[in-house]
Nucleic acid binder design. Structure first.
Lengths: 213, 213
DNA sequence: CCCTAAATTTGGAGGCGATGAAAAATGATC
DNA sequence: GATCATTTTTCATCGCCTCCAAATTTAGGG
């Protein structure tokens, strides 16, 4: 009894709902699709949709929660002699080469991101998830470094690192959206990511220093 | 015709709605107050409430938008020879001494913050405002430093600085909520804020470096 | 097979935030 | 005081979401 009929049907229903929803969102935009519409397309009742997904937003941002585990692993599996930032730098550049979806480097990530940007409720939910992921990473950092519970460093470091990846990846979206070829945009991004990580490592103490008159 | 009766009444109505709303929110919690309730308390119709405030959340977070201008000024009015981070450090510590509400140092900021934390929709809206403020600060930084439009430094620096203030200020809330006296909590916070700004200036390049085996 | 217990799905009623349009009230203007 | 513009109200409606009870489906044992 590895997997009963019940379990399989549940998994299938969940997937059918999510797939139908994504299809509708992609073609019509998130706010122009009602939950009733999704339910009809998936051939279930509205209540069943809310049975599997807490909110309409979760229909769209289903996979985002997996990121949490991914980032935690980057820290935990960093190499001997490697700092946390170095580990993320390595992970980020590897993701660029591999077209990893975690940082928005996959084909079609632009459509996905644009849909989020265009919907206030999706933006809000995405930010909430970002925050949860940051807190999770902070907890992992605190555990890995044996930090004091009152030490703010883990939370600050987590915020700075993830903030960096989000800003840099968002810039890629801006460029491709502006019509620039994906190839050139990625090449330019590599340089900007390098500079960003460098600045993160060496600090921004002198940034924008006003000259003495 | 400095100010007609019309203008005055509008201002009064707006204020009455905001005040009544805040009073209800404080005593019953944000999610336990309906817009209809606010309207009744302010003696207007529901539509009038939405006439003055775009959403229910804006009833609560009315003043937050002023922060934008405030942070921009910190950058623009930094002293000769002073870097951006130094200017914010100075502003932040001055605010601590003055009990400034901008960073949550005023009396009663804890109640305010707790209400935000406890309501998902308020949290979401607060984060959206945070993001807008960060983007505004980034634009100011770009202008002040004459940065290239493709330079990500302004956005990254803005995010790091404001992220720092939010994390540190949130820690004060955690401490006072835990029962610690405001006096001691503030004293401890000073040291933590100093460490946080130092780390921001000098970078986190070596953070969490795993020892070579 | 049949029966029962448990899980899943459904329908219906309703609350709440938000929008839109037309009617009513109020202030401004001449 | 009549007229015009603005503001407020009323009324209708939509969409997300919750709660509850009834109906359906599956699991497991006789």
């Amino acid at each position: 009894m590895e997997e009963g009929l019940r379990e399989r049907k549940k998994r299938e229903t969940r997937r059918r709902i999510a797939d139908m929803a994504m299809g509708l969102f992609m073609t019509k935009g998130f706010d122009n699709v009602t939950v009733a519409e999704v339910a009809r397309a998936a051939d279930v009742s509205v209540n069943t949709v809310f049975n599997y997904f807490g909110t309409k937003e979760d229909l769209f941002l289903d996979r985002e929660q997996e990121l949490q585990e991914s980032y935690d692993r980057v820290v935990r599996e960093r190499a001997p002699g490697e700092s946390v930032v170095e580990a993320f730098r390595r992970d980020y550049f590897a993701a660029m080469d591999a077209g990893d979806w975690r940082y928005g480097f996959n084909e079609g990530a632009d459509v996905f991101s644009r849909l989020i940007m265009e919907s206030p409720s999706l933006r809000a939910r995405a930010r909430e998830i970002d925050h949860l992921i940051t807190m999770s990473l902070a907890a992992t950092l605190a555990e890995e470094t044996g930090a004091d519970p009152d030490d703010l460093a883990p939370e600050l470091v987590a915020g700075q690192i993830l903030g960096l990846t989000r800003v840099v990846s968002r810039h890629l979206l801006r460029r491709t959206t502006a019509g620039e070829g994906r190839r050139e945009a990625l090449a330019a991004l590599r340089e900007q990511a390098r500079a960003a990580f460098d600045r993160l490592e060496s600090g921004i103490g002198g940034y924008g220093r006003r000259p003495v008159e």
